[in-house]
């Protein structure tokens, strides 16, 4: 059949490219389980001859990796919770209420959403020093809010505006006040959007590097990104297996979230990010 042959050809072409795209990630995993001796063999072995989890063990016991992981988790979760709570209320207000300055506010949100962190990092650095928050997790939560809040507001706004207004009108007529309608009808409807936004925000915070680089300088508060990079920079001999193991571990939460988000990715996120 002609159609099935075309399908075969497209499949082979597409999958070749897909595998090429994900090859660096495959290589990351392969490297992380290769024994040190095999790492520098020439030519490199594509599949490791022996699989070892030695690097993972060293990562967890000999390095502050677990501390970094804990810091990143606290940071990302705290920021996400704060930002999603504020953003849900704020986005609802922007979408469904009329008051002076609303349009200006929405534009301002967009502007800050597109604002480079590097512009804010200097004044924030000074601000943290003044507030006595220098080198604390709190300073990073505050700093992360600067990009996470506009981002969450922007996503939530597009999720919320897709909820039919009639539902709220019906709730009002049925005896609810504005807040009652919000709790009874809007929140349950917006829940998938809120969850997606929370997950995206989490990813954003989890991956952040610049603020982590500038605002903290001790291992007790350093998140994963800055911490792992510090391992690279401060080590005398670059230990690639260890770094690849760290990379894999660092990506684990993302893989979990990613599988969870698959559906939204092709629909919601595209719409949210572009339509605004």
């Amino acid at each position: 059949m002609n159609a099935s042959r075309a399908r075969m050809i497209w499949s082979v072409v597409t999958w070749t490219i897909v595998l090429a795209v994900v090859f660096p990630l495959i290589w990351m995993i392969v490297t992380s389980v290769k024994p040190q001796s095999e790492l520098f063999s020439i030519p490199p072995t594509l599949m490791p001859e022996t699989i070892t989890f030695e690097h993972y063990r060293r990562l967890l016991t000999d390095t502050p990796f677990l501390q970094y992981f804990r810091n990143s988790m606290i940071l990302a979760v705290t920021t996400t919770v704060v930002v999603v709570v504020l953003g849900t209320l704020g986005a609802y207000s922007l979408v469904r209420f009329k008051y002076r300055g609303r349009e200006t506010l929405a534009t301002l949100v967009l502007f800050t959403y597109l604002m480079p962190s590097v512009v804010l990092v200097i004044p924030l650095y000074l601000m943290m020093a003044k507030l006595g928050l220098a080198n604390t997790l709190a300073s990073l939560v505050i700093a992360y809010t600067t990009f996470a809040l506009p981002y969450a507001l922007w996503l939530l706004r597009s999720f919320m505006s897709s909820i039919p207004v009639d539902l709220e009108s019906a709730a009002l007529v049925d005896g609810a006040g504005r807040m009652g309608a919000f709790v009874d009808v809007v929140l349950p409807q917006a829940l998938p959007g809120i969850v997606s936004t929370a997950l995206f925000t989490f990813i954003l915070c989890w991956n952040e590097y610049l603020f982590a680089l500038v605002l903290v300088n001790s291992d007790s508060v350093r998140p994963l990104t800055a911490g792992t990079m510090n391992m690279l920079i401060t080590s005398f001999n670059i230990d690639w297996s260890l770094l690849m193991a760290a990379s894999v571990m660092m990506s684990l939460p993302l893989i979990v979230i990613f599988t969870f988000l698959q559906g939204t990715l092709t629909k919601g996120f595209g719409a949210g990010a572009v339509k605004g």
Binding site: D166, L167, S169, A171, L172, V173, G175, P188, Q189
Partner: peptide
């Protein structure tokens, strides 16, 4: 007077049934 306090009921063109 807010809708809740008017003692009215309304049927919407879209029905507006609460999906959840």
């Amino acid at each position: 007077v807010p809708p809740a306090k008017r003692d009215i009921a309304m049927v919407f063109q879209s029905y507006a049934l609460y999906p959840h």
